[in-house]
Amino acid sequence: MTPQSDSPLLLMEEISKVYRVGQEEVYALRSVSLAIGRNEYVAIMGPSGSGKSTMMNLIGCLDTPSSGRYLLAGRAVQELDEDELAAIRNREIGFVFQTFNLLPRSTAAGNVELPLIYRGLPAAERKRRVAGAIARVGLSDRATHRPNQLSGGQRQRVAIARALVTEPSLILADEPTGNLDTATGEEILRAFAEIHRGGNTVVLVTHEEDVARHAQRIIRLRDGRVESDSAV
C-alpha cells in the first residue's frame, strides 16, 4: 500500500478495453501504456471516439480493463472486486464531473460529507473535514445551500470540495469547465492549479486545447492509442 516515492502513482501497462457491439468487437483502447507520477498535473485530450472517456473510467476505477495491468497507488486494480473498487474510489480518487453530479436534495455540506460517510468516519471528524474542504473552495457561507440555490461555478466548487475532502491520491476531472462560461471556467481552472500547487495529483480529461494548456503535461489519444505525450 505504501509505494516508494519514486514509483509512479498510476501505472498502466498494455491496457486494452474491448466492447462487444452485436457480433463485432470494438476496441476503445488498444494496448495503452502510461505512467503518471505524484503531484503531476496531466491533461488527457482527444476528439470524441478517441477512447478518452474509457480512459477516464479506467483511471477512475469505475470500470476495469479487458486486458493489461493497472496499478494505482501500488494496488493492482484489475484484480479487485466491485466492493474493493468502491473502496479505492472512495480513498484514492476524487471525481469532478462536467455536470457536477451533486445530490439535489442534500446541502452543499451534505454533498461534501457523503464520501466520508461511506468511509465510515465518525460524525465529529466528518464535520471538521467538511468545514475544511468547503473553506478551501471558498464556500463557507454557502454550506447549507442546496445545489439549485448555487451558481454553476459554485456547484462545481462544491464538487471539488467533495473530491478533496477524502484527501485522495488523485483528483480526476472530466470536462470540469464544459458546462460553465469562460470566466467561471477560468476560475475553476485556477482552483485546480491551486490544488496542484498544494501537492495533489490532478488528471484532467478534456477536448479543449485552452483548458489542457493549464496542465504541465498533455497526453493525446486518437483511435484508442496514445498519439502524443508531452510537456506543455
Partner: peptide, 16 residues
Amino acid sequence: TREIGIRKAIGARRQD
C-alpha cells in the same frame, strides 16, 4: 439511477 451512480463513484459499496 443517476444518484446511485454518483454514490457509487464516490465510494458507496453495494451494501451501502
